[in-house]
């Protein structure tokens, strides 16, 4: 069966050089106007099956949010292909995207900025549905209440404005909005990272319950390893716009192959364990996406880097069992398309 979402070699670059006047430089006595290009996503491929949760982890600046927003066409991709349900949507314009909106929705990170402060809750949650409805909808009010009930909000909440809700309740409203068109795929961009721990658990449970009820898939973006392990079937680890490792969650957590994945797992604090010794940690910080390192993106921080890492960029190679890694230390596998 064809995957629900298939992303092939997706690339996203942003020109941040500004106008010609911002770019002018004098270098070696010559006037130049260099462009500044952010390489946010650099050839990422993955698939999501129906009913599956793919978790994307990585630190800030690794391109995971940009990737999510490109998949849902908030950004026009620079290169590569996005196929939803077998339909290539890479070049779709506004009008051809309209039927796609019913199949793919998004949940946002910031519960305060993601709801229009001047709209009533009933109007917020029904907006995607009404915008994509074929004809007049006679039962708007009932539908809105039913949606709110699904996310644990009552009739009394329907006529309130967002500022009358707590962060967790606002995130429920955002989930109801995504749910209104009964999509096949929901892209969740750090949906719980702005919430308190006890509320995080409520929202994660709700998201899983809804998935079980409706059978949709999640592309779940987060920086939090414990959250990603809890919610995902498969995990992709991103670094500097590259997918460095993907696989079933147990393979990633129990047998991480990429030195970056290993470092990430070692650095995450675990309840009741001592602070990991400095020797386990990777040094330095993520390089700028304006100037990608040659070869492997992680080689500048990698404790195991050798000559080849600077010379040649590793590609994702399958290690069996759906586990793939882009690292010269694991060179034996078969390249993943």
């Amino acid at each position: 069966m064809a995957p629900l979402l298939a992303v092939r070699d997706l690339r996203q670059r942003f020109d941040v050089s500004g106008s010609i006047f911002d770019r002018l430089r004098i270098r070696n006595g010559r006037i130049t106007a260099p462009r500044r290009i952010v390489h946010a996503v650099n050839g990422v491929s993955f698939e999501i099956a129906r009913g599956e949760v793919l978790g994307l982890v990585g630190e800030s600046g690794c391109g995971k949010s940009t990737l999510a927003k490109t998949v849902i066409k908030l950004h026009e991709p620079t290169g590569g292909a996005i196929a939803l349900d077998g339909e290539d949507i890479t070049q779709h314009d506004f009008h051809r995207m309209r039927p796609i909106r019913k199949k793919m929705q998004m949940i946002f990170q910031d519960p305060y900025a993601s709801l229009n402060p001047r709209q009533r809750v009933r109007d917020i949650v029904m907006e995607p549905y009404l915008e994509n409805a074929a004809g007049p909808v006679p039962d708007v009010a009932e539908r809105a209440l039913a949606l709110l009930a699904k996310v644990g909000l009552g009739r009394e909440h329907a006529d309130r404005y967002p500022h009358q809700f707590s962060g967790g309740q606002r995130q429920r409203i955002g989930i109801a909005r995504a749910l209104s068109v009964e999509p096949d795929l929901i892209i969740a961009d750090e949906p719980v990272s702005a919430l308190d721990v006890s509320i995080q658990a409520q929202i994660l449970n709700l998201m899983m319950d809804l998935k079980d009820e409706f059978g949709f898939s999640y592309l779940f973006i987060t920086h939090d390893l414990s959250v990603v392990r809890h919610i995902s079937d498969r995990i992709g680890v991103m670094y500097l716009g590259f997918m460095v490792e993907t696989g079933p969650k147990d393979a990633i957590f129990e047998n991480p192959l990429h030195p970056y994945t290993q470092a990430l797992l070692a650095a995450a604090p675990v309840l009741g364990t001592p602070l990991p010794p400095a020797a386990d940690a990777i040094k330095g910080e993520v390089p700028s996406a304006l100037n990608l390192p040659t070869g492997c993106p992680f080689r500048t921080r990698c404790p195991l880097a050798f000559d080849r890492c600077a010379a040649e960029r590793p590609v994702l190679k399958s290690q069996g069992g759906g586990h793939a890694v882009a690292c010269h230390l694991h060179d034996a596998g078969v390249p993943v398309a």
């Binding site: 998004m106 946002f108 229009n116 709209q119």
Partner: peptide
């Protein structure tokens, strides 16, 4: 802000985004 992105994801045309979401 993300609510404008949410409106885009909902499929609202620009005119509606401006009038319904930005203007107020």
């Amino acid at each position: 802000k993300e609510y404008i992105q949410a409106a885009r994801v909902s499929g609202l045309p620009n005119a509606k985004i401006i009038l319904r979401h930005v203007l107020p």
